[in-house]
Nucleic acid binder design. Structure first.
Length: 103
DNA sequence: ATAGTGACTGGAA
DNA sequence: CTTCCAGCCACTA
C-alpha cells in the first residue's frame, strides 16, 4: 500500500463539508497508524489554493493546531465557521462534528 | 552520516 | 486544568 502525500490528500478530500477529522484519524485511514505527524507534514506541503479541504483537519483535542502562522490559524477557524462549525472556547465538539466514515 | 525540529498523540505526574 | 515525555518519522541543516 502507498502511503505518500497523495494518499493522505485523497483521504482528506473525502471529509464532508461541515465535518472535521483528526490527524491521527487520517493517519489510520491512510494505513499508517500512530503517524499523525506525517499527516501534519502533508498538510504543510499543500500549495495555497489547493482543492484539498485541509481546514477540516484538526488535532485530537478539537483545536486548530499551532503552526508558525497565527493568521493562518485564524483563517482556518473562519473557514470552518463558514461551513457551519461552531467553536466553543476555542474548541470544536468532536462528538458533534467528527467525520465518521461509512457511519 | 548525525542532530534538531515539528499543522501529533496518549499516558503520566 | 498544566507540564512533561516517549514514540513516531520526514525534513532540514
Amino acid at each position: 500500500m502507498k502511503n505518500d502525500n497523495a494518499t493522505i490528500h485523497r483521504i482528506v478530500s473525502r471529509i464532508p463539508r461541515g465535518r472535521v477529522a483528526t490527524y491521527g484519524q487520517i493517519a489510520d485511514l491512510a494505513g499508517i497508524p500512530r503517524q499523525a505527524r506525517r499527516v501534519g507534514y502533508a498538510m504543510r506541503r499543500l500549495p495555497e489554493g489547493s482543492a484539498v479541504p485541509w481546514q477540516r483537519v484538526v488535532n485530537a483535542s478539537g483545536e486548530i493546531s499551532k503552526r508558525g502562522d497565527p493568521a493562518g490559524e485564524a483563517m482556518q477557524a473562519q473557514m470552518l465557521r463558514l461551513e457551519g462549525i461552531v467553536f466553543h472556547r476555542g474548541k470544536i465538539s468532536l462528538d458533534r462534528y467528527l467525520w465518521r466514515p461509512k457511519g
